[in-house]
Amino acid sequence: MSAKHTRQMAVYSATKGAVSALSRSLAVEYAPYGIRVNTLLPGYVETALIGRYLSNPMIAKALLTQTPLRRFGQPEDIANAALFLASDEAAYITGAALNVDGGMGTTL
């Protein structure tokens, strides 16, 4: 693994943590105004962004073994979770982080 790759992962991890912390803080700050703030935590989703990795069978297999549902997410999986959190059915949810990752977060 190159030093450049390692730094990129550190920055990615730090910014992901910062977004989660910011979301929780905003949820508390804006709750009195009836504004809900939640975070989606997607796993590997079949998009152009990771398509080059998924086209490598060895990488795809390694990623799938980390995902209990044994499939990659689809953009619709993320969209459906976002629609739920924005809906009236989630009216009492704020400050939550919803894993939409096929169970991958539970194995790490």
Rank of each mutant, 00 (worst) to 15 (best):
I50N: 05
G43A: 12
V28N: 04
S23G: 15
T65L: 10
V11S: 11
Y30P: 00
E29N: 10
K4S: 12
L49G: 04
S55N: 14
L22N: 02
P32K: 13
R70H: 14
T107L: 02
N99W: 05
D101V: 05
L40V: 08
K16M: 10
L64W: 01
L49Q: 03
K16E: 00
P32R: 03
V45Q: 04
R70S: 12
G102M: 09
Y30F: 12
V19W: 01
E46I: 11
M9V: 08
V37I: 08
E46P: 08
M58R: 14
A3D: 15
L64Y: 01
L41C: 15
T67C: 06
T67W: 06
N80R: 02
A10P: 00
V19S: 09
A82P: 02
N38M: 01
F84N: 13
S13L: 13
I93Q: 06
T107R: 14
D88N: 14
I59R: 04
G51V: 08
L85F: 01
V45A: 10
L98C: 06
Y12S: 05
V37Q: 04
A79T: 12
A96D: 02
Y53K: 09
A91Q: 15
V37Y: 00
L85C: 12
R24A: 13
Y44S: 10
L26P: 02
L41V: 05
T106W: 08
L85T: 06
V45F: 06
S13F: 00
G95M: 01
S13I: 10
G103A: 03
G34N: 11
N38C: 11
M58S: 15
T94Y: 07
I59F: 00
R36K: 10
L98N: 04
L49E: 00
L98G: 11
T39R: 09
N38P: 11
Y44R: 01
G17I: 08
Q8A: 15
L22K: 01
K16G: 13
Q8V: 04
L54R: 10
G17P: 07
G95A: 11
A21C: 03
L85V: 00
T106S: 15
N80F: 10
L98R: 12
P57Q: 07
L69S: 04
L83V: 14
G105A: 12
D77S: 00
N38G: 06
L40G: 13
F72C: 05
L69R: 11
D88M: 04
V28D: 08
N99P: 15
V28Y: 13
L83Y: 07
